[in-house]
């Protein structure tokens, strides 16, 4: 699986036309203790660049922006009772699983290296 990143700190791990979307480790760290993840319903369509939910910590709330367009085929139900899984391991604990409708959108995202650079820049 290849991992791509968006400038708003979501990642998508892609396996064929299936993608797992979550927030990056950098993002979970910046948010602090996650207390709630507002997720869409299975069957909802998401659109690249549009918000599909929100994530809340004690000190901040942030929209979740879809890195690609697609249909939600699963949500990570573990996050309902235990949103702190995002803090424990953001890269494993994805938020939604989607079926991509336009895989070419992946070309607009960053790879690991480009994303690292972005994070370095934002730290200053």
């Amino acid at each position: 699986m290849k991992t791509y990143y968006s400038p708003s700190h979501e990642y998508i791990k892609v396996d064929g036309n299936i993608g797992y979307i979550g927030i990056s480790d950098y993002a979970q760290h910046a948010l602090g203790n996650v207390v709630y993840v507002d997720m869409p319903e299975v069957g909802d369509d998401i659109e690249a660049g549009e918000d599909f939910g929100a994530i809340e910590s004690v000190k901040a709330a942030s929209d979740l922006i879809a890195p690609v367009s697609g249909a939600v085929i699963e949500i990570n139900e573990h996050l309902i009772d235990n949103p702190r899984l995002v803090n424990e391991d953001a890269m494993t604990n994805w938020i939604i699983k989607v079926e991509l409708t336009n895989p070419s959108e992946l070309d607009d995202l960053m790879d690991e290296e480009a994303y690292k650079e972005l994070c370095e820049k934002e730290k200053h």
Binding site: V35, E56, S57, V58, K59, A60, A61, S62, D63
Partner: peptide, 13 residues
């Protein structure tokens, strides 16, 4: 509590 919902954090939304 649940202050993250409050506008002073989530401004233009």
């Amino acid at each position: 509590t649940l202050q993250a919902r409050e506008q002073h954090i989530r401004r233009e939304k």
